[in-house]
């Protein structure tokens, strides 16, 4: 299924996230990942979403119908700087530990916790790096995994990123 990356600039008011989530549920749209946080302007928050499905036009229009939504920007591939953070705990029997650490080094993953038979890595970067690392670690066995949700900023000096206007 095709995935789309959108940034939604909203008024920093209580319940905005609930409004967005409720609208997605009601309209039967699917959110793949979601990250919310403050912006340079304390009256605004930014929601970065990866959404599934072919209904992008409707999703954008329905977002705009929410009174607290100010701007919706869809980022086409390559038009934005994208980052995500992941914590992943993998099986690491002492006999294979150095092998795993060497591999992690190549992916620029940082070991942040070590247990008797596990290592927990932090990986930051483009979503593809995270998925590559995960793919590699599957051979050792992934015990648990958490992702922050993708965040993105449109690249500077490039007007290619489409800001979908309210008029159709």
């Amino acid at each position: 299924m095709s995935q789309h990356l959108i940034t939604v600039t909203v008024e920093n008011k209580p319940g905005v996230l609930a409004r967005i989530a409720s609208m997605f549920a009601r309209r039967d749209f699917n959110i793949h990942s979601l990250a919310v946080g403050p912006t340079e302007d304390p009256t605004r928050s930014r929601v970065t979403m990866v959404v599934d499905g072919p209904e992008m036009e409707q999703i954008v229009k329905q977002l705009y119908k929410l009174v607290h939504v100010i701007k919706v920007t869809e980022h086409l591939p390559g038009e934005a700087v994208e980052r995500e953070i992941m914590l992943v705990r993998v099986n690491a029997d002492p006999s294979r530990r150095s092998e795993i650490l060497n591999a992690a080094n190549i992916f620029e993953a940082t070991a942040v916790d070590v247990g008797a038979a596990t290592i927990t890595f932090e990986v930051v970067g483009e979503p593809s790096r995270l998925s590559d690392f995960l793919e590699f670690m599957r051979t050792y066995g992934i015990i648990s995994l958490v992702k922050s949700g993708r965040i993105a900023l449109a690249k500077d000096n490039k007007s290619a990123s489409r800001s979908r206007k309210r008029t159709a």
Binding site: Q58, K61, Y64, A168
Partner: peptide, 11 residues
């Protein structure tokens, strides 16, 4: 309401 346009039938 822009969301009504092309919601059911492409305009």
């Amino acid at each position: 309401d822009p969301a009504e346009i092309s919601k059911i039938r492409k305009a």
